[in-house]
Write a protein that binds this DNA or RNA. Structure first.
Length: 848
RNA sequence: GCCCGGGUGGCGAAAUUGGCAGACGCAAGGGACUUAAAAUCCCUCGGGGGCAACCCCAUGCGGGUUCGAUUCCCGCCCCGGGCACCA
């Protein structure tokens, strides 16, 4: 037997070095004829090193890219490091080191680990978001938005954690309103001046493009949800005895007849004007309470206070009281609502507590509704499950003892000019809005949940915002030729707790001069880490270019990205910001994608996005606290990178994730061992393809087709099993062919790239790199089908016989053949089938 | 509460448009080789019945449509993930 034992350590080291020397992964971006841009979410280089979750994500993208390369594309597949941000900074604080010291070592470690995995990265084009050569251009991006009026400074409410001593982002606030890092500490709302990006200007476009962009459905849904488009109406309510009007937003203008009070957000600008004097103290007290209340978005018991003012319901003419309550948010709609207790569970709850009237305005279509549409009666959910219960619930709603927000028909909804009674919800909405619009009392209105992106961070580890203030406090953009505004070196990078960033404590950095020579003070906040990652895929094409952020010709040639693969946890922030940044840069005249862009919107950065699934470890999610985090190094050492790659892609459907089980890895290594022996030890005569059995030849063509299709749809697990099946069939045959040997290696190569190179150059004695010269084989459609197929014959749907029939046999022939079968005749026992269903290529079903 | 996924052997999982349920792999059992073990190779492997040819049952639960349902429809249960006072 053989001196050719498969030793992955030797094979992988050998070819990794060879690829480096021969620049196999490098792409000549300017010269490439058939550009294909494969992107994966670049990692944050943690001190712990590469996580198996990263490896899973990257391998899936790498398989796709390598397969495309075999198909003849010039695949550009870069990687970089997302090293700015609060994670790095917090970790540095924890171990009492400076982030600037830690990052280079982490990046070096990550680079080694990534190389070890055999990923097809162009190592000549990496980015590190913390290097001045990169963040110079991040600051440039800010300036483009600033000049286009898409960046502005404003004072808004932000989250402030007293224990962190700094402002934190929405995503760092737990759902119970406590700080992510300080579990027991309630986050406060504070008003602070911050820089914002006008993402809301693009809300409609960001939302509408979801109708056609080719993204994972779950990602699109999450993002659509976040953008939160809703259609409704704005309606004016005249304040009784005063000149002011209160404008509200509602998605249910059809319920206006049931509006029995109004609510303003506590910080609504009209409150002070309309409140009666004797209520001022109570209002101030409530506002103070609301101010230190849990962070926005946390449900709690409804509270509020009356302002003493009344407003006129425009449909009934009745005066209704105006309250303030913190269940109404200034940041959404107009910051004011009309309250319809019978049609909204929040309003119902509030009305019940403060004894406000409930006017039923809808007769519910109770069969279609859900129990959660009801409040105010015990066990509505249980009641709703029974037909009897449904009528009890309906009666409660009609009596005003419960509320209903589902479908139904309007009742009690008419005035002298407008009659909605009996109309279904959609029609009543339209009629009510049209009537209001005709009277000048309201209008149709589309609203979004999305809010402008606050990018200021009172932190150290990020790119400084390139703004200088004059003595009057007016902001001035730092001229582009003065970029980068370097992040100053300081030992003291910790937040002070006074709400100002650490940079504010470095006067020699803060004090500067304006372009016109006047003294100025630098903005001391740094930019959100999400800005670094919102444009990195544009920089990849021009790494090393110190004259521009990106070369317009290369952008036109390579963008948009052909496929982007990453985790769905970035559906709403990163993936939304990237789309926004492209639209904003385009609007600023600073970005123009080429003919590859979709004509429906030339600023969408990703032609295709696919979310990979989550890896779990023996039944539970991997986490440090559970101690079941997999360090890929150990596995690569033990099994080799190709085996680990194969295993990760095999363990479950890639877009669903799966269970990482140590015991299962060995199967992939055995497979490679067998393949290795098959290529190196021979034993099987190699003959012309035409001399092989038809079955084997057909299987080969079928596999070539299936693997191509499966990889295209990221069904990696079934692609691998198809190759295994082909190999099992091939090695069992008396002879094989060069065609089959080359097909098998081309099919499996994206999963086991080192192994493929070894087979190609050593066993098959091909000149040059597999990855530079090999092509994915063409399949012959006519060779993907056998001449004869096995069909089943059923009697009353039960399989009773299997027959080998010509593939092209039609229904009539099949019926004849089935009835000719001895076994079937015996089973029929003289009975004549009442009905015969014959499906060519599949079955015959005889009904007796 | 709302929105997504998912539920198939001992385990990870397959199954074009509705058409032979369990491909591929792991584990397990038996055998070959070996002084022995490892490695490798061969066989068995959803459950029940039968000497056997074969037969019956089975894709979370309950209904339905269909010649035929893992697949489609209605109603539930359980698990995982995300969002959560958005008017």
């Amino acid at each position: 037997m053989s001196e050719h034992v498969y030793d992955p350590v030797v094979v992988e080291r050998k070819w990794q070095a060879w690829w480096d020397t021969h620049r196999t992964n490098a792409v000549d971006l300017a010269a490439a004829r058939n550009p294909f841009y494969v992107l994966m979410m670049f990692p944050y280089p943690s001190a712990e090193g590469l996580h198996v979750g990263n490896v899973y994500a990257f391998t899936g993208a790498d398989v796709y890219g390598r397969h495309r390369r075999l198909r003849g594309y010039d695949v550009f597949q870069p990687i970089g490091f997302d090293a700015f941000g609060i994670h790095s900074e917090n970790f540095a604080m924890k171990i009492n080191r400076h982030p600037a010291e830690l990052i280079p070592a982490n990046v070096a470690n990550f680079t080694n680990q990534l190389r070890m995995m055999g990923l097809m990265f162009d190592w000549e084009r990496t980015v590190d978001t913390t290097s001045p050569e990169y963040y110079k251009w991040t600051q440039w991006v800010f300036l483009q938005l600033y000049k286009a009026g898409l960046a502005y400074r404003d004072e808004k409410e932000v989250n402030f954690c007293p224990d962190c001593g700094t402002v934190i982002s929405d995503e760092q606030v737990n759902t119970d309103g406590t700080c992510e890092r300080h579990g027991g500490t309630m986050v406060q709302r504070r008003r602070m001046p911050c820089w914002f990006f006008r993402i809301t200007e693009f809300a409609e476009r960001l939302s509408n493009n979801h109708e056609w962009i080719d993204w994972s459905e779950k990602t699109k849904l999450a993002q659509l949800n976040w953008i939160g488009r809703s259609e409704g109406a704005e309606v004016d309510f005249q304040v009784q005895g005063r000149p002011e009007k209160i404008r509200v937003y509602t998605t249910r203008p059809d319920t206006l007849f049931g509006a029995t009070y109004m609510v303003l957000a506590p910080d609504h600008p009209l409150v002070d004007a309309i409140a009666s004097p004797e209520k001022q103290d109570e209002i101030s007290a409530y506002r103070r309470g609301a101010g230190v209340s849990p962070a926005e978005g946390v449900p709690k018991e409804k509270t509020g206070v009356p302002t003493g003012a009344f407003a006129i319901n425009p449909l009934t003419g009745n005066p209704i009281p105006v309250y303030i309550a913190d269940y109404v948010l200034m940041g959404y709609g107009t910051g004011a609502i009309m309250a319809v207790p019978s049609g909204d569970h929040r309003d119902f709850e509030f009305a019940a507590k403060y004894g406000l009237p409930v006017i039923p305005i809808i007769d519910p279509e109770i069969e279609k509704g859900k129990a959660e549409d009801t409040t105010g009666i015990a066990d509505a959910a249980e009641l709703m499950k029974t037909p009897d219960g449904r009528s009890i619930v309906r009666q409660a709603i009609l009596d005003g003892r419960a509320c209903w927000s589902g479908d139904g028909r309007a009742i009690n909804s008419a005035n002298a000019e407008l009659d909605l009674n009996g109309k279904p919800v959609a029609e009543a909405k339209r009629l009510a809005t049209e009537w209001l619009a005709a009277k000048g009392l309201g209008e149709f209105k589309t609203t979004f949940r999305l809010r402008d992106w606050g990018i200021s961070r009172q932190r150290y580890w990020g790119p400084p915002i390139p703004i200088v203030y004059d003595e009057q406090g007016n902001p001035h953009a730092v001229p582009e030729d003065q970029l980068p505004v370097l992040l100053p070196e300081t030992k003291d990078f910790r937040p002070k707790g006074d709400g100002r960033g650490p940079l504010a404590a470095i006067p020699e950095w803060v004090n500067t001069t304006l372009p016109d020579g006047r003294p100025g003070r630098r903005e001391t906040d740094v930019m959100d880490n999400f800005l670094d990652s919102a444009w990195y895929y544009l920089r990849y094409v021009s790494t090393g270019d110190d004259k521009q952020a990106y070369d317009p010709d290369l952008i036109a040639k390579w963008l948009p990205v052909d496929i982007y693969i990453g985790g769905n946890e970035h559906a709403v922030l990163h993936l939304l910001y990237t789309r926004f940044i492209c639209m904003a840069l385009e609007k600023a005249g600073a970005l123009k994608m080429g003919p590859r862009a979709d004509a429906r919107d030339t600023a969408e950065p990703f032609t295709k996005f696919r979310a990979h699934g989550l890896l779990i470890k023996e039944g539970s999610k991997m986490s440090k606290s559970k101690g079941n985090v997999v360090n890929p190094d150990i596995y690569v050492e033990k099994w080799g990178a190709d085996t680990v790659r194969l295993y990760l892609m095999f363990l479950g459907p890639y877009q669903q994730g799966g269970d990482f089980r140590d015991d299962d890895i060995v199967g992939m290594r055995r497979f490679l061992n067998r393949l290795h022996a098959w290529y190196f030890d021979g034993g099987q005569p190699i003959v012309a393809d035409g001399e092989l059995a038809k079955e084997l030849r057909v299987k080969t063509h079928q596999t070539i087709k299936k693997v191509r299709d499966d990889i295209d749809s990221l069904s990696y697990n079934t692609a691998i099993s198809a190759v295994m099946e082909l190999h099992n069939a091939a090695k069992a045959a008396p002879a094989t062919s060069e065609f089959i040997r080359e097909a098998v290696i081309a099919c499996i190569a994206p999963f086991a790239p080192h192994f493929a190179e070894e087979v190609w150059q050593v066993a098959l004695r091909k000149p040059g790199s597999f990855w530079a010269t090999a092509r994915y084989p063409e399949f012959d459609e006519s060779m993907t089908k056998l001449d004869e197929v096995e069909i089943v014959v059923q009697i009353n749907g039960k399989v009773r016989e299997k027959l080998l029939v010509p593939r092209t046999a039609d229904a009539a022939t099949l019926e004849k053949l089935a009835l000719a079968s001895e076994k079937i005749q015996k089973e029929l026992d003289g009975r004549a089938p009442k009905k015969v269903i014959a499906v060519p290529g599949r079955l015959v079903n005889l009904i007796v």
